[in-house]
């Protein structure tokens, strides 16, 4: 078949395609970033899945079953799911140990060739946790503004003023719309609640 001129990597042909897929995991593709690390990572996730399956089966035995037992009680489905999860985890574990790797999810804003920026992940996670704990103390708008600024900073926004300003304005507008117009329960913090009492 003819391939598009100048289409770069887009133009494949049948033989090439088949060849690429036939050898299963594709070490040359864009998913190959850090093969070793990725593999142990997925193995850990699979072990976690196995643990979940064992937990399901073991803890299901502790579910109290009320009197009449001629029908299926609350334990059966957990046992069933636990069994499926364990089987899946074992099969997947074997696969992963053999070197099979799932292609990392592609996404518009993701650069699969880039190494993992654990610092950014950490900042986002910690900022989110902090805002969860702060909401009832300082109100949603302020807590979420701080989270917004920290996340924006972790993702490469410049300056401090602009992220804070953007987060602050958005959160207050959102708060007013959802709390005052849609009656969503969201603590506004003392100041904002006083200031918008008339609404």
């Amino acid at each position: 078949m003819s391939t598009a001129a100048g289409a770069g990597p887009a133009a494949g042909n049948a033989g090439e395609d088949a060849g690429r897929h036939a050898d299963g995991p594709d070490p040359a593709g864009p998913h190959a970033a850090g093969p070793q690390g990725r593999n142990t990572g997925e193995l850990a996730l699979t072990v976690l899945l196995l643990a979940l399956g064992l937990y399901l089966v073991l803890d299901a035995a502790n579910i109290a079953v009320p009197g009449s037992s001629n029908t299926l009680g609350p334990r059966f489905f957990p046992y069933l799911i636990g069994g499926v999860v364990i089987a899946t985890a074992l099969a997947l574990g074997v696969r992963v140990l053999r070197g099979d790797r799932g292609p990392a999810d592609e996404s518009e804003d993701v650069d699969l060739t880039a190494g993992t920026d654990w610092r950014a992940v950490g900042v986002v996670a910690v900022a989110f946790l902090a805002h969860a704990l702060l909401i009832n103390v300082i109100g949603w708008p302020l807590a979420v503004t701080l989270m917004f600024a920290a996340v924006a900073w972790a993702l490469g926004a410049r300056g401090i003023v602009r992220p804070l300003l953007a987060g602050g304005i958005t959160s207050i507008v959102v708060w007013i719309v959802f709390v005052k117009a849609l009656n969503v329960a969201l603590p506004g913090g003392t100041l904002l609640e006083l200031a918008t009492e008339w609404l």
Binding site: F128, H131, A132, A149, A152, W153, A157, V184, L186
Partner: peptide, 19 residues
């Protein structure tokens, strides 16, 4: 800009889940 987009998505995630 991406930083603002994802920070905003998390803001709405917080709003919806807290609600």
């Amino acid at each position: 800009p991406r930083p603002y987009l994802y920070a905003g998505i998390l803001m709405f995630a917080s709003l919806g889940s807290y609600a």
